[in-house]
């Protein structure tokens, strides 16, 4: 059974005003437990709205969101429960830090869940370790941390709730290459250690290629593609028409194909590309 599922979601901003905008248009998809889904689409494609629909921060005009088979809006009074089950990390989450110490800030979510002090303490430590935040930073003020550390502390604040589904909106935006790498590894680690499903929005196709099991492509609030990365990245023309890109490896393979080399389809990581080129060289050598 899918852990998270959306059926015919629709959302309109400012309904009935001149600023009306149909941000999410009939979107349906489902995510299995333990799956990593990459969401791509250019600015204004409805990604951020979709994420807020998935954890009940916004209520869809029509359509349903189910978590573990349960309709989250069945009883609006219990909506908070689902916010703990579907953890949402906003873009630039470091701007939401507020408490005196990093530790207290990470504890904010678990505290709201009504857990015991002991359990909260354990979760804070576990979350800090998962995001690679050294223990000596915990008693510091969150505003004294570096940019990358702030980001990780903020993500830890959501991870500490130990959601079954973790959603991240452009988690690597504005970070240096090393900071980016740390965040990506952290996403993978959370997914593997807890078996939680992860959805993440990214503009970086390499990130999507490296992590995602499936890719959801959005454009103008509509669902364009939802498939495995090899199938999605095989449609480079469709993606380019949506001002999106394909990973470097796919681009190399497309170039080779145009030059007449018999490369395989569905290659989107650099490792696979290297293997494929090695294979070609070997075969080419044998033929020559």
């Amino acid at each position: 059974m899918p852990i998270l599922s959306a059926q015919h979601l629709n959302f309109i901003y400012g309904k009935g005003t001149p600023y009306e905008k149909h941000a999410v248009h009939d979107i349906s998809f489902s995510v299995e437990p333990g799956e990593i889904v990459g969401i791509i689409g250019h600015t204004g494609s409805g990604k951020s709205t979709l994420m807020q629909l998935l954890n009940g921060l916004l209520k869809p005009m029509n359509g349903t969101v189910t978590v573990d088979g349960q309709d989250i809006w069945q009883n609006p009074k219990t909506i908070r429960k689902y916010r703990f089950q579907v953890g949402l990390v906003f873009q630039y989450p470091e701007y939401q830090l507020f408490d005196e110490t990093v530790e207290k800030d990470i504890a904010f979510g678990p505290k709201n869940m009504g857990l015991t002090e002991e359990e909260i303490g354990e979760r804070v430590l576990r979350a800090a370790e998962l995001v690679d935040l050294p223990p000596h930073l915990l008693p510091k003020s969150p505003f004294d941390l570096s940019g990358g550390e702030k980001r990780r502390a903020a993500i830890a604040g959501v991870i500490a709730m130990e959601p079954k589904v973790l959603i991240l909106d452009e988690p690597t935006a504005g970070l240096d290459p090393k900071g980016r790498q740390t965040i990506l590894e952290m996403i993978k680690a959370y997914n593997q250690k807890t078996g939680a499903a992860v959805l993440f929005v990214s503009h970086n196709m390499e990130d999507v290629a490296a992590l995602a099991h499936r890719v959801l492509v959005l454009s103008g609030g509509k669902e364009v593609l939802f498939d495995t990365p090899d199938k999605v990245f095989a449609q480079s023309e469709t993606l380019q028409n949506l001002s999106l890109d394909v990973p470097v490896a796919t681009r190399i393979m497309l170039g080779l194909k145009q030059k007449g080399f018999a490369v395989k389809d569905g290659i989107y990581t650099l490792e696979a590309a290297a293997d494929e080129i090695a294979r070609l060289k070997k075969e080419g050598g044998a033929n020559a």
């Binding site: 921060l57 908070r80 916010r83 953890g87 906003f90 939401q96 904010f108 959501v158």
Partner: peptide, 13 residues
Amino acid sequence: EKIMSAQKARGAD
């Protein structure tokens, strides 16, 4: 609104 949503996502009431 953004900050409110972010804190609500962490269960702020």
